[in-house]
Simulated assay, not measured.
Amino acid sequence: MKRIFALILGIFLWLNVVPTALAENTRLVPCAESSVFVERVQNAADSYYTTKPLRAYSRLLCGEDGLPHLVLDRLSLALDVLTPIVIFLYIAGWIGWTGRSYLRAIQKLGSQEEKEIFIDIPLFVKSMVLAFLWPASAVQEFLSGDLVNKDEEIPISIR
């Protein structure tokens, strides 16, 4: 029974029987034209923390609730969202690659436990500087097979 269902589901998905859903911006209006948003701006306290952001929000699109919504139907808005995401992923990868390269370097030196507790600052700074190019290093280690340990090299708990 499960196989028949899977076969039928596969045929339906393969033939694209499900109609394509199109997202249309029919409810959003520019915030400057939204009566609820304009009322919200007029009722807001006159301070730096409310006036300046609300002026910036007036260029966005607002819903029926008078609050700005970010619609990624334009390339410029998609780039506005994609830029911080890429920056975050790069910095997170840089931090991770710094720690990884430091741990691998102290493993080769032999005094691994001591240097995990008392950090070797010159070695750590060297690891940080080399980690700026972590995407290229990751690709290089992946292609050489050095990025991931083999199954035999991974310790397994005796529990």
Rank of each mutant, 00 (worst) to 15 (best):
N16I: 12
R3P: 03
P122Y: 07
G99D: 11
Y49P: 03
L130I: 08
V71E: 15
L109Q: 14
I4T: 06
L89S: 05
E116P: 03
L28C: 11
G10P: 03
S47F: 02
L147A: 11
E113I: 05
F142R: 08
R104A: 14
I4F: 09
L133H: 03
P84F: 04
F12L: 14
A6Q: 07
R3G: 08
K115I: 05
L133S: 13
E64D: 10
A105D: 15
Y102Q: 05
I85W: 03
D73S: 05
P19W: 08
I87A: 11
G10N: 06
A78S: 08
L82R: 00
V38I: 06
R74A: 09
L7W: 05
V36H: 04
Y49L: 13
D65Q: 02
G66F: 00
Y49I: 05
N16V: 09
S144D: 15
S47L: 03
N149R: 05
G110F: 03
L7G: 12
A138P: 01
V148G: 05
P155K: 01
T50C: 06
A44W: 05
P68M: 02
L7P: 02
L54Y: 04
L143W: 14
R55C: 04
R100V: 10
F5A: 07
T20D: 09
E116H: 09
P122F: 08
I4R: 10
V148P: 03
S137T: 07
V125D: 06
R27Y: 15
S127E: 13
D146G: 10
L130N: 10
R59D: 11
W97E: 13
N16Q: 12
V86Q: 08
S144Q: 14
L123Y: 08
K115R: 12
S111R: 13
D65M: 02
L13I: 06
Y49H: 13
W134F: 12
F132C: 13
L9H: 06
K126D: 14
E24V: 12
L123M: 08
I95H: 04
A56S: 08
N43S: 08
Q107S: 15
F12S: 11
A136F: 14
A45Q: 12
R100D: 13
E24R: 13
A21L: 12
P53I: 04
F12D: 08
H69M: 03
E33R: 01
I117C: 07
Y102V: 01
I121S: 04
D46F: 12
K108Y: 10
I117S: 10
A136E: 09
F118G: 05
R159I: 09
K108M: 11
